[in-house]
């Protein structure tokens, strides 16, 4: 592993995990460009991808400042290994069909609406500024995504079956969003971070409202699969990174 592995600065590590969520999600969403169900949706998905990429760039930039030593946002994006990425495993899940992409997005939008709202008053002023802007975007994303989830859930028999399957498949990755580890607790104490456990109730409430409109049943308690925050990913992330980092790995140390 490279030197980033330690990430000894807790403030940097904290900013970085949220940056990683957005970077990996943006990478996944951008895979849709030119493949959407209609041209309007190509534009919309590109828009959402750009928003997440923008947030990721700001957060990785902030983390790289905290790390210091001339580290850049691009170093953090393109030079870390899969064990060093600390995104939740939900965002690295493949796009699947449009229903899977929308289920993944709904779970993330509902989470980020709450997350950014809380981080907008962080003691870390830079993080707070990024969160305030991201919060506005997440409100729009949530509206767009929940509109699709309802259309698919309450559309045709086929779309209903697909939407239900997507929710069922991805539900096991949602628990990680609200898991608190030592770093989270430390950041809550210092006034920088968020008590994620407190977000899970409002999150479930929002998801349940959309699911009701969409005629989708939420799964019962299922065994959750987390681990992303400590680099214990699903097998998908390595492939995503090998594609994303290919240029930087093939031509090390160049400006593009």
């Amino acid at each position: 592993m490279t030197g980033f592995a330690t990430m000894t600065d807790p403030a940097a590590a904290y900013v970085l995990r949220h940056g990683d969520d957005n970077l990996v999600l943006a990478q996944r969403l951008s895979e849709w460009v030119s493949l959407g169900p209609e041209l309007e949706e190509d534009i919309a998905l590109a828009n959402v991808a750009l928003d997440h990429l923008g947030v990721a760039t700001h957060l990785l930039g902030h983390a790289s400042q905290l790390v210091g030593g001339g580290t850049t946002d691009d170093d953090l994006a393109f030079q870390r290994t899969e064990r060093e990425f600390t995104n939740v495993v939900l965002v690295e899940q493949p796009n699947g069909d449009f229903a899977h992409t929308m289920a993944r997005q709904l779970f993330m939008d509902a989470y980020q609406r709450l997350l950014w709202e809380a981080l907008a008053v962080s003691e870390d002023a830079i993080l707070a500024g990024i969160a305030a802007k991201a919060h506005k975007e997440s409100l729009y994303h949530f509206r767009h995504t929940s509109g699709w989830v309802v259309r698919l859930g309450d559309g045709t028999d086929e779309s209903h079956t697909r939407m239900q399957a997507a929710v069922d498949n991805l539900w096991r990755y949602t628990g990680e969003l609200f898991e608190m580890d030592d770093l989270d607790r430390q950041m809550v104490e210092s006034g920088v971070g968020v008590d994620l456990g407190a977000l899970s109730g409002p999150w479930l409430h929002a998801i349940a409202a959309v699911a009701a409109d969409a005629m989708i049943a939420l799964p019962d308690e299922v065994t959750q699969r987390g681990g992303g925050r400590r680099g214990f990913h699903t097998e998908h992330l390595g492939h995503l990174l090998s594609e994303m980092q290919w240029m930087q790995r093939t031509y090390p140390g160049l400006e593009w």
């Binding site: 209609e38 449009f98 698919l152 086929e158």
Partner: peptide, 8 residues
């Protein structure tokens, strides 16, 4: 691939 989405 998008036909079922548009139909929905």
């Amino acid at each position: 691939d998008g036909e079922w989405v548009r139909e929905a």
